[in-house]
């Protein structure tokens, strides 16, 4: 799968200024034909993934905040407008499991609620540069992975969402104590806009690595990519 990092690269632009005619055969919008700049950027992004994996300290906690620091009203963000949020039916909802997991039975919402929960007031930093502080409560992902018999030596944990969004994280970050499958936001069940019925909350990564309205969770050694990652965002995107 090829990744387009710049629809029209800087190299392309510099050439275009000098000789537009030479470039009529090139199409920088073609996902299947990344130009040289796209390839270089892709290699560098993979390199940055490795550097960030090496920098990641599994015992270092993201900063936590007092309740007074919580951002109100909370800020909505998705790849679509808030008016297009899909509403999930909590009664029919199931969390499907796939990949290197020994107990693959799907989980219902009420079953997840019976598991030990953890609460956190942490900061979410968006890849765009803004940040908000929120309170989330849910099941620590590491506990959940061990409970379902996941192979925690596998490289990736992948997530699929009700709105077509998807993402994936490295196993070390998945096992971090502050990485949770959140059920509650601001002391109440998640609302549709903020990820009902279940979302990933991972304060050691950027906001787009916190997929909402999860429908499936998998453990795999094959790079799963993600909605934004496939378009050129750095995959690891750790904080």
């Amino acid at each position: 799968m090829t990744v387009l990092l710049t629809r029209r690269s800087m190299v392309g632009r510099a050439l275009a200024i000098g000789s537009t005619s030479l470039l009529t055969a090139c199409n920088f919008d073609d996902l299947q034909h990344p130009d040289l700049a796209d390839r270089v950027l892709r290699v560098m992004s993979r390199w940055n993934d490795r550097v960030q994996e090496a920098l990641f300290d599994p015992t270092r906690l993201a900063p936590t905040y007092p309740a007074s620091a919580i951002t109100r009203p909370p800020r909505f963000n998705a790849y679509y407008d808030i008016s297009d949020v899909r509403v999930v039916d909590g009664n029919a909802w199931r969390l499907d499991l796939f990949g290197a997991i020994s107990e693959k039975r799907a989980w219902r919402l009420e079953d997840l609620r019976t598991l030990p929960q953890e609460s956190q007031i942490t900061r979410l930093i968006c890849v765009e540069g803004w940040r908000v502080v929120g309170q989330w409560r849910g099941v620590p992902l590491g506990d959940f992975l061990r409970r379902i018999g996941a192979d925690t030596r596998a490289r990736y944990v992948a997530f699929r969402c009700a709105d077509g969004y998807h993402s994936s994280i490295d196993m070390a970050s998945a096992l971090h104590p502050q990485t949770i499958l959140a059920l509650d936001f601001l002391d109440a069940p998640l609302t549709p806009a903020f990820g009902f019925p279940l979302r990933l909350r991972i304060p050691t990564k950027l906001g787009f690595k916190n997929p909402k309205s999860l429908t499936a969770l998998g453990v795999t050694n094959e790079y799963p990519g993600g909605y934004w990652e496939d378009q050129g965002y750095n995959w690891f995107s750790g904080s």
Binding site: L5, R7, M10, L41, M44, N48, N234
Partner: peptide, 13 residues
Amino acid sequence: GEWLGGAIAWHFA
């Protein structure tokens, strides 16, 4: 970089 993802890729390269 044309858009945020492209710009970040250039910046971090």
